[in-house]
Simulated assay, not measured.
Amino acid sequence: MVTMLIFNDGNSNKFWEIKVAGKSHTVTYGKVGTVGAVKVKTFESEEACQKDADKLIRSKMKKGYVMANPSEQVMKESKMTDLEFWELLKISKQKGENEEEQLEWLINHLSKRPVKEIVMFDYYFNQNYLKSYTSDLWAAAYIIMGGASDDTFDYFRAWLLYQGKETYETVILDPEKIIPHLKVLEDEEDIPELEDLLSVASIAYEEKTGLEYDDYYDLYEKLTGDQNIVSEIELDWDEEDEVGLKKKFPALWVRYGENPLE
């Protein structure tokens, strides 16, 4: 159930929307023509949730709010798109001398934007990040670093995504195309991992609202419908089979098989 109300007394022009879904309701409110602020509340039962929503609607209408005209665009959609997501990553790489400073800028930038845009940044991150969860890329990471646990592979994929859309999508299709992008790490004796990128959005949300990760995840799920569940993949390679790994990615093996980044 969705109810959209507006209030206009000549001085204020505001909207208030509530969406009820199961045991939770999501309230979005703000000036007409903006994306608004968002709050999510969860109850012990669907009945309790609906009862609270009805109470809030009655309270708003007593204050002078009226039903919005369905044909009017009261609330602005978030301007965060997949294109904007990639552009922000590109800009962030110009905002510091190292990845720590760059991600600090990105968090600060996101924390100044509406909550919906923080959430949608994370949504596009997750949708793109999921594309790299492949058996071939895991084999490549294993060769490059001389081993790759679940967590190591996660951080490797985050680092790869941070290299930009073109590089990311190219390497997913052909993991050996990653070699030129590892040269800087070889020189610096570093490894291709970027764990901190995984939590950029949730930290930005916490800085903006003062609320913690559990609140953020609940809001993320309600706004996007994405439960961020990753299915297990079946590896088509064996870490004990060096011959098979050499055959799978000969160029990577020649470069890192006996001398991995670590």
Rank of each mutant, 00 (worst) to 15 (best):
K177M: 09
Y205C: 07
M67N: 09
V200G: 12
Y133N: 00
P250M: 09
D214G: 07
E188Q: 01
E206W: 02
K79Y: 08
V119M: 03
N128Q: 03
P70F: 04
N13A: 11
G36A: 06
K76T: 01
L110K: 07
W86E: 02
A68R: 08
T28A: 09
E104A: 10
E117Q: 06
E117Y: 08
K248P: 10
D136E: 10
L106P: 05
L130V: 08
E239L: 04
N8I: 06
K55Q: 08
D215V: 06
E97R: 05
L235P: 00
N128R: 02
A68V: 07
E84C: 02
L130A: 15
Y220T: 00
E221L: 00
Y216Q: 03
W16V: 03
I57Q: 05
W253A: 04
K246L: 11
A140C: 12
L261H: 07
A141T: 02
V32S: 02
V254P: 01
G22R: 07
Y65A: 10
V32K: 08
F7M: 08
G225H: 02
W138T: 00
R113V: 03
M67C: 03
D54S: 09
F15M: 06
L106K: 01
K19P: 01
K76D: 05
E44G: 11
K55C: 04
Y205G: 07
R58W: 11
R113Y: 08
K93W: 15
D226K: 11
L194E: 14
V200Y: 14
T81H: 14
K93N: 13
A139K: 06
S135T: 07
D190K: 14
S92E: 05
A158N: 13
A251Q: 14
Y256S: 02
W159F: 14
Y123K: 00
E46F: 09
L56V: 02
K248Y: 15
A158D: 14
E17L: 11
V254Q: 11
A201V: 01
N8T: 05
Y162W: 15
D214V: 01
P250W: 08
E188H: 01
T26P: 08
D238P: 00
F121E: 03
V66S: 15
D190A: 14
I18T: 15
D215Q: 03
I191H: 03
D154A: 10
Y129W: 13
E72L: 09
E101F: 14
V38T: 09
I144G: 04
Q163T: 10
S231V: 04
T42Q: 14
E100N: 11
P175G: 14
K76H: 08
I179N: 10
A251H: 12
L198H: 03
E87P: 05
D54L: 13
R113Q: 14
Y220P: 04
F249I: 01
N126Q: 12
